[in-house]
Design a protein around this nucleic acid. Structure first.
Length: 390
DNA sequence: TATACGTGGCG
DNA sequence: TCGCCAAGTAT
């Protein structure tokens, strides 16, 4: 199916869409749309840390690392993490040989920690299965840990110039507006993927698949933004069906997602006289998997504050800790639920021994350990830390 | 197909 | 202040 046919299908799926609108948008052949975008990209190309100099092929290791970091994460947030990570692990082999805990520590604060665990597993898999070189086909890439359909396509076209278009949130938004896609996400995903596949065909004459993918994502990030899109300077403004209708901000349509219930719990900060804090490691899988935390209760909607001290850690060599409940709470919002933690603090002497499964972490070590932002907030609330040092 | 999975920025 | 959103994947 050609691009024109899909436009007709889009129009057919929009009963309220006036037939008069068919003529104004998309006055030019589809291949020129791709050419227009590449020309725009050549003029407005952003210099990002993982991007190769113009005309040069990007390093697959850097492309992969950046794409994993950029999953659900903004360019501004990723920048500093990417540079630090690359300085510490300059190539695939150095990453594959590193202990997982060190990798988690380098990832601390970025969120979605399964990405770091899969990153590490992927590095080892590429060394074992591919001799240390990333495969170039989308299918082989997608079989690696942490690499799904989007990332496989992104690496394939950006690092190897394979003929494919990765479809991320940016591309979905651009295409949903360009074609005024009526269906809601995520149901519209197959339709949007098909539109993206047609675009890959359009790029054929230029054979710059990596540039085209990055151009499309840049267009979504800087021009076709979720709110207040800058249509007046968009290279595709003349072809955009939503722009013609004036309702571009209402695309893509999305199904309403329900919000999670508030969960509450208690955290216990034990400070040793030399400043060290009692911590433990969370289980490998699930929320904040493998990350460092202070001891605490379960987090639940029906948390009973009066019984909170039952969860307090018992420190060997101490006859009983004098717990002090700090005023206020530590609030944190996860993707699927908000959390409020009350914090208890206690001080102990140098002779104390950590309970089974726990250890004491010196202040200087906290910055180098795998401590998630939630726990940074708890430690800051307890007065143990000023804030994360970037 | 739906849900779990972090965090920070912005209007 | 608060809801939305950002270059998704695994199960």
């Amino acid at each position: 199916m050609g691009a024109k046919a899909s436009i007709a299908k889009t129009l057919a799926a929009n009963p309220g869409f006036s037939g008069k609108r068919r003529e104004a948008p998309r006055a030019r052949p589809a291949d020129l749309l791709a050419v227009d975008l590449l020309a725009w990209y050549d003029r407005h190309r952003r210099n990002l840390p993982w991007r190769a100099p113009r005309g040069e092929r990007a390093d697959p290791y850097r492309v992969w690392l950046s794409e994993i970091m950029l999953q659900q994460t903004t360019v501004a947030t990723v920048g500093p993490y990417f540079k630090r990570f690359l300085a510490r692990y300059p190539n695939l082999r150095s990453l594959a040989e590193a202990p997982l805990d060190d990798v988690l520590a380098a990832w601390a604060g970025l969120g979605y920690y399964s990405r770091a665990r899969n990153l590490h597993a992927c590095a080892r898999a590429v060394v074992e299965r591919h001799g240390g070189n990333f495969p170039r086909s989308e299918a082989e890439l997608a079989s690696l840990p942490g690499i799904g359909p989007y990332t496989a396509a992104a690496i394939a076209c950006i690092a190897f110039n394979e003929k494919t278009v990765p479809v991320d949130g940016n591309v979905e938004r651009v295409l949903a507006r360009l074609h005024r896609v009526a269906h809601e996400l995520p149901r519209a995903k197959p339709e949007l993927r098909e539109l993206a596949r047609e675009l890959a065909e359009d790029v054929g004459i230029a054979s710059r698949f990596g540039d085209f993918a990055q151009a499309l994502m840049d267009l979504g990030a800087t021009i076709c933004r979720p709110r207040q899109p800058r249509c007046m300077i968009c290279p595709w403004q003349a072809a955009c069906l939503a722009k013609a209708q004036g309702d571009q901000e209402s695309f893509p349509k999305k199904s309403a997602k329900r919000e999670g219930n508030l969960r509450r719990g208690a955290a216990f900060v034990v400070s040793r006289r030399d400043g060290a804090v009692l911590v433990r490691k969370r289980q490998e899988k699930g929320l904040l998997g493998g990350m460092v935390e202070v001891p605490g209760s379960e987090w639940s909607a029906d948390f009973n504050e009066a019984a909170a001290l039952a969860f307090a850690p018992r420190v060997r060599g101490e006859s009983g800790l004098a717990w002090r409940r700090l005023q206020g709470e530590v609030g944190h919002v996860f993707t699927h639920f908000p959390l409020e933690l009350i914090v208890f603090v206690a001080s102990i002497g140098l002779g104390a021994r950590a309970p089974r499964g726990c250890r004491f972490l010196a202040p200087a070590e906290i910055a180098r350990a795998a401590v998630p932002t939630l726990m940074i907030k708890v430690l800051a609330h307890a007065g143990v830390l000023p804030r994360r040092a970037l």
